[in-house]
């Protein structure tokens, strides 16, 4: 999805005169998603005789999606529509993708890619947060980071620390944040979560860090 996002950030005047940028770039992203799916299902066997193979339906849907993407793009090119509402989601996308690479394979190579993506995401995030559109960067970035922090911290660090960190970083998503209030409110919510999920509902959640080591911290699972 990030390709479409990057594309949509290019100025829509220039060489092209797109009359409905929302549809035009949206359609393009769908085409790219379809292409990605065709590539991802390239190894799956297709029809044998009149029976469907594992790859038949995915490719069928992908091709229809691409066709629809082209149609949406054309409609967006030729008919008038509202201007694109601004958004900034490249940094959170990169950070999320980085996590996907960490978990997608063994060995060093995926981790190197992940580190590069993470670095790029963080740099972009910092630049964005200092730039003129910092309020647009802030919401999606803080919320994604808050969820990722919870995901990677809940096993090694336990529910209490993970929730607290996660709530504080989520609260930072709005410019209305008041820090003292947030720190107290996060503590209240953490206590509530502890009382509700592991105690009242008996869900198997570790409360505090156990057997903390670098390998458990860096497994990210």
């Amino acid at each position: 999805m990030s390709e479409g996002v990057r594309a949509s950030r290019q100025p829509s005047h220039g060489g092209l005169k797109v009359r409905n940028p929302r549809d035009f770039w949206g359609g393009l992203a769908l085409i790219l998603l379809g292409l990605f799916a065709v590539w991802a299902s390239r190894d799956l066997p297709g029809m044998h005789g009149f029976a469907f193979g594992p790859g038949t339906a995915p490719r069928m849907f992908a091709f229809v999606l691409m066709a629809l993407g082209i149609a949406v793009m054309l409609v967006g090119y030729f008919t008038d529509g509202p201007a694109l509402e601004r958004y900034e989601i490249v940094a959170p996308t990169l950070i999320c993708l980085s996590y996907m690479f960490v978990v997608s394979g063994q060995g060093v190579a995926p981790r190197v890619v992940a580190a590069i993506l993470l670095l790029a995401g963080v740099v972009l995030a910092v630049i964005g947060l200092m730039g003129p559109r910092r309020q647009l960067v802030r919401g999606p970035l803080c919320i994604s980071i808050s969820i990722i922090i919870f995901a990677v911290a809940v096993r090694p660090l336990g529910l209490v620390i993970a929730s607290y960190l996660s709530i504080v970083s989520a609260a930072a998503a709005t410019p209305e944040v008041r820090w003292i209030e947030t720190l107290i409110w996060s503590a209240v919510l953490t206590v509530f979560c502890v009382l509700l999920f592991p105690i009242a509902l008996n869900l198997p959640l570790q409360l505090w860090p156990t057997n903390l080591s670098w390998s458990s911290l860096l497994s990210f699972r």
Partner: peptide, 13 residues
Amino acid sequence: RLLFPAIIIFCAI
């Protein structure tokens, strides 16, 4: 501003 962090953490858990 108080409500949404609560929603996020409940969803995450």
